[in-house]
Design a protein around this nucleic acid. Structure first.
Lengths: 214, 214
DNA sequence: TAGATTGTTAATCGATTAACAATC
DNA sequence: TAGATTGTTAATCGATTAACAATC
């Protein structure tokens, strides 16, 4: 069967659909039309239908979409029906914060290991998991079926550590280091560049003020 | 003078240009052509020229772009030539991690206050700044010329706190809460939805494996 | 059956890329 | 002046929106 490639623009919207559907489901709402979703989510009904139809028909003419079914299907598309094992590289403030983030577990992202170069941190426990030296990483990844690595280390180290992780068999990298990683295309990278995000905010604040002085 | 609206697609690319130009500048490189930038950044030279020309001509035919000048101009566009005063609402792990993030200061984002509902945290100091109760927020924002609020509180509180902050005169919100805020359009919101990002990574990992079993 | 709403095709809009004249 | 490379217009590509036939 020929699968058409789904654009990243569509993918980016899926988690937001998923979130709103969770809420509707939680509120006990059984069905929803693209028009109703459009009203609460502030996107066009047309886009909603197009997006869903990338993955096959989830709705029914004259009825709309069953909330629970749709929620479940989008979850499956996002791979939330499976379990991911993740390690965090870099036990600084951000690494520890993410390690403590219990909500990820709920969606199947299981925090399994935490690594850092700093010997002072070794043995320190976060949510029951000890910080280990970087040297233990290879063995740990291989022994524990780790598929996602979270990089919260300085950019100077990030590129080489990423390459190592790829060699150890990792499948995806959640990259918080402020640098572009260079990995084979079979490895998925999702960047969270916080300072980029802050700069965008800064731009929009400045631009808005400029617009208003005209 | 008529200013054409710049698309957010262009804005999103500016911080990355800025980053690469910082590196070139730091490496002592004086000039760069759109083609050279294209090679290292893996975007088309055409896009680079189009992007820059949204803001007027920064280059010179036959020569290319002066790295330092271009770096500086993009910094100005991003509003990095001014100072922002920010407060963080929510002194949990993530809030503390961001408060400790010294790099933002370098770009003119000055961390000024930290607020939390939890009395156990009140008085605790992060980088010399005491956690204050939420009740002190209003006065503090007004007295200290705060223009950016960072929301690292649970989504249940985020919407109302955002509304309060808007009333206190904040200009921009950096929102880490997993909810869409509802603020007037003169208030800039930049969302960092970590779990959305993780879901995208999850999708891409799943999708890649699916593609390979075909 | 009549009404509602999807799935899907067609039209539009916007963003990216290509091409080249302008000019340093 | 000749060569290089921008700035900018035109062409293409892709994503969004509109429209409506299919169908529950």
């Amino acid at each position: 069967m020929e699968e058409k490639e789904i654009s990243q623009a569509v993918i980016s919207r899926l988690p937001r659909y998923f979130r709103y559907l969770s809420e509707l489901k939680y509120a006990g709402i059984e069905r929803v039309s693209s028009q109703e979703l459009s009203d609460i989510m502030k996107v066009t009904a047309s886009q909603i239908r197009q997006d869903f139809n990338n993955f096959g028909g989830f709705g029914q003419q004259g009825y709309g979409y069953n909330v629970e079914f749709l929620h479940n299907e989008i979850g499956k598309i996002l791979g939330l029906d499976r379990t991911h094992h993740l390690i965090i590289i870099g036990a600084g403030n951000l690494g520890q914060a993410l390690a403590n983030y219990v909500n990820f577990e709920r969606r199947g992202f299981l925090f399994r290991g935490l690594f850092d170069n700093n010997p002072d941190l070794h043995g320190k426990k976060i949510r029951g998991i000890e910080v280990q030296p970087m040297e233990s990483m290879e063995m740990f990844v291989k022994d524990n079926d780790i598929d996602i690595a979270v990089l919260t280390i300085p950019k100077t180290e990030a590129v080489t550590v990423a390459e190592q992780l790829v060699n150890y068999g990792i499948k995806g990298i959640w990259n918080f280091a402020h640098v572009d990683l260079n990995v084979p295309e079979n490895i998925q990278v999702e960047n969270v560049h916080l300072s980029d995000s802050l700069m965008k905010l800064s731009y929009n604040i400045s631009r808005f003020e400029l617009d208003n002085t005209k």
